[in-house]
Amino acid sequence: MARSNKPIVWGPFAAGGTLTAFLTPALILLTLLAALGHAPDLLAYDRLHAFAGHWLAKLAIAGTVFLSLWSAAHRLRITCYDLGVRADTLVATLVYGVALAGTGAAVLYLARI
């Protein structure tokens, strides 16, 4: 028996789970308000563009996207196994792949802001 390298994927999962627990409900509320036609001030183009233009905000947004997608991906991987899907390597590649792709895309778009 050798010690596993699972911490590589579990560390970001635990960090992401904690981050999403604190932030995601409030963030969802923001876009829910927008969907209801009462978009908060920050979601006005000028303000949001200015906010997201700052390098610190870009870092924070990219980090939030990565940790949120990663922890969701890891959980989905476990859930698939729990529901009887045995092809764990395939599932892991798919879910972490989406998480990394989403993060990569976010970084690209943030770079253009």
Binding site: M1, A2, R3, S4, K6, W10, I78, D82
Partner: peptide, 14 residues
């Protein structure tokens, strides 16, 4: 740790 930090150790717990 060789046993409980292995893949079949704590890491199978969800």
């Amino acid at each position: 740790q060789e046993e409980i930090a292995a893949t079949e150790g704590a890491w199978e717990c969800s």
